[in-house]
Every structure is written in structure tokens, then in C-alpha cells.
Amino acid sequence: MEKIIECDKITHYYGDRLIYADLSFDVEKGKVLGLLGKNGTGKTTIINILNGYLKPRSGVCRLFGEDMNNISPATKSRVGLLLEGHVQHTYFNVQQIEKFYSAFFPKWKKEAYYELLKKLQVLPTQKISTMSCGQRSQVALGLLFAQDPDLLILDDFSMGLDPGYRRLFVEYLKDYASAGNKTVFLTSHIIQDMEMLIDDCMIMDYGRLLLHRPVKEIMDNFKRYRFVAPGQDFRLSAGNDFWSPSVLGDKWEVYSFLNKEEVLSKLSAMGVKEITEEKLSLEDAFIGLTGKY
């Protein structure tokens, strides 16, 4: 399968603070990849590096096989970029911004833009600076659809959106991604939205990539287990098999990729007699993998 995004051993620091060391991953054609991570784990940073807006300490990223620092105009026209906060040129109105962008993209689909904007209660002459965040998000999305890029890079697309606009955004995006073998790389703080949308999931922790797996694999295999401590001295620490163990009173919870039998077998050696297994949402799985704090 063709690799659309390749990051190879990216190391980056802000001052003395390590953001990543030797971060490597790639995104194949047709995949929708979600980048999850707590605040400050470098989600926007990797998007900036990918688009050549930040020079890492070392390593290289490639878009469609081209080095991030020398992306050709032809490749730029294949990449749709949504900046954090749906940033756009706010001095334009709805019509003017479409006219401006249409001059740059040969495959421009004017109707895709106006079709999306029909859902909004805005006039063609309304200035973008007077729009709500939700309306601006639709303008930005409409422009991306009109550009018809092969790769969409969306930085925190749900930021500032109410549930209705978030859902609208996700539905359009899902439809777009599945229709034409498009590749999408996105970040969001709202993990519920990601669950509906993404095929693969990358979870960042401070300084490293915690996990990069298909969402289905995580949802099918990563479970929460609850049990009662066999005694006051019982202790369980995080390790290869157990993630984010925590206790409230004598009631423990722990996350694991192991199945119930395997977990019980390991815990019974410590005196635990009974465990209960819980299926997780992606958000629960994210908490399980990264911890609550």
C-alpha cells in the first residue's frame, strides 16, 4: 500500500523540553488516522513538522514521498490543511474566499463548497469575521472539499464547536473519506468524534508514541478489569500487561490487552479471586492508556 505520510525518527525539543525522541510512523493511502494525546504531547507540533512549518531537531517527514522542507506546489495542491481553530482569512466574505481559493486549484469544486454552506444560515455576502466558530468551521470544511485534496490534515477540528456542528463536521468528513480513497490525518480533543471516524489510532504520551494500532484492535482487545483487593497490603503497579492501575478504598481497576482468563491467571497468583471485565469506549481506552492525570 502506498505511504502518503512518512515520519522517520523525528526528535524535537522546545528549549530543553523533549517533545519526541525518534518518533516514526506512517499513514497508508485511504486510511483515516487519528492522533490522540493529552495537552502538550505535541499533536499540533507534528502537524507543523509535517507541513514544513517547524524544523525538528532531527529526522525527516515526507508527504507523498517529498521531503517536508521541499514540498512542491503540485503536492501542496493535493494536501488540504485545516489549522487549529479553523483559522481562515476573515477579511473575506463567503463568496470572496471561494473566489480567492478557486484560482489556485485546478480541480476546484465550487458546488461542494456551496452545497455545504446551504446548511448554514449565512448570506453569500456575510463576512467570515462576523461568523460563529461553528459557521467558520463549515466554511473551512467547504473550502477543503472544494479543493478535493487527496490528503486532509486537520488540526483539532472539533475545537470550539458545539455538538451539532461537531456531528455535522464528522458526518461530512466520514462521507468524504470513504467516497474517494482519501487519506485523513487528524487530531481532536473530543475522542467520541474520533471513534466514529478513524481507522487507525496513534496515542502520544509525553516524549514518545505510546501506541499506533487500528481502532478496532484497541476496541476489541483493550479492556478494563475491576476486582477487590485480597488484603490491605495488595499492590499492583503498571507494567507490560497492566495499564494505569488505580484503587479507591479496596476496589481496584486496571486496563489490559490480555483477555479475562490471562488477567485472572496473573492476578490470582497475587491472591485475587474474581475479576469483572468491561468493554471500553475509545475515550475510556485513551484514559486507560494514558492515565487520568
Binding site: 512549518y53 501542496k76 490543511l81 489549522l83 483559522v87 482569512h89
Partner: peptide, 18 residues
């Protein structure tokens, strides 16, 4: 100044041209 507000210059530099 509008180009630098919210780093909009990124949008301009992302246009398909050198």
C-alpha cells in the same frame, strides 16, 4: 498584521506555488 494573526501566513504559504 492579519497574516501574522493566528499565523495565517501558513495558509498563504500552503497555497500551491513556490
Amino acid at each position: 498584521v492579519p497574516e501574522m494573526t493566528n499565523k495565517r501566513l501558513k495558509l498563504t504559504l500552503h497555497l500551491p506555488a513556490g
